[in-house]
Simulated assay, not measured.
Amino acid sequence: MSTLILMTTAPTSSISWHALGLAQSLEKQGLPLSVFFYQDAVHIANALNWMPDDQRNLTQEWQKLKVRLPVCVSAALNRGITDQENAIRHQLSQSNLAERFELVGLGELADAIQSSERVIQF
């Protein structure tokens, strides 16, 4: 059964960690999985997120998964997160999108919803 994890929760919420745990479990079981970062969850894709050495870094944990990490471009730009291409287009001084995350349009979310057997929103 293919699963889409729709992330909408900020990385400061414990719910974001539950979503990661589900993704890790599905991947470990070899089950089809896709993810989409939307609303406040786009903050997970910020390369400037910092955590003390004694705490796990949510961004880095998502990067370890073998799954695409698409991020809504509009939600990201609205929250100060951009890749190099959009930084140039919108005359921003730098980019800060974390590695392996990619900015995409909402059409990708629509496609993921259509091709998934279940959608779980966190």
Rank of each mutant, 00 (worst) to 15 (best):
T3D: 10
A87N: 05
A10S: 15
H18T: 05
I88S: 08
A41K: 12
T3C: 15
P52L: 11
S14K: 14
S116P: 05
L69P: 04
I113P: 08
V67H: 11
A10L: 06
L33Q: 06
L22H: 15
D54A: 08
H43Y: 14
Q121C: 12
V71I: 10
V104W: 04
L33D: 05
G105Q: 09
W17H: 09
D53V: 01
M1F: 12
G30C: 09
R79G: 00
Q39R: 13
F101T: 01
M51Q: 15
I15G: 04
A45V: 02
N46E: 06
T82K: 02
Q114T: 10
L92Y: 11
N46G: 04
V104R: 06
G21C: 03
P70H: 13
R118D: 03
T3E: 14
Q29I: 00
A110P: 02
S14N: 14
M51A: 11
T8L: 05
T82Y: 00
T12I: 08
S13E: 10
D54K: 10
L69W: 03
A45C: 04
P11F: 08
L97C: 02
L33E: 07
F101V: 00
A98W: 04
P11Q: 09
L92A: 03
K66P: 00
A41Q: 11
H43I: 01
S16Q: 09
S2K: 13
K64G: 02
M7R: 09
L109G: 05
D83Y: 02
N86Q: 11
E61G: 01
M1N: 09
D54S: 11
F101M: 00
P70K: 09
N86V: 00
S13W: 06
R56C: 01
Q29R: 12
W50C: 01
N96E: 02
I81L: 10
R89F: 06
P32C: 10
P11D: 07
L106H: 07
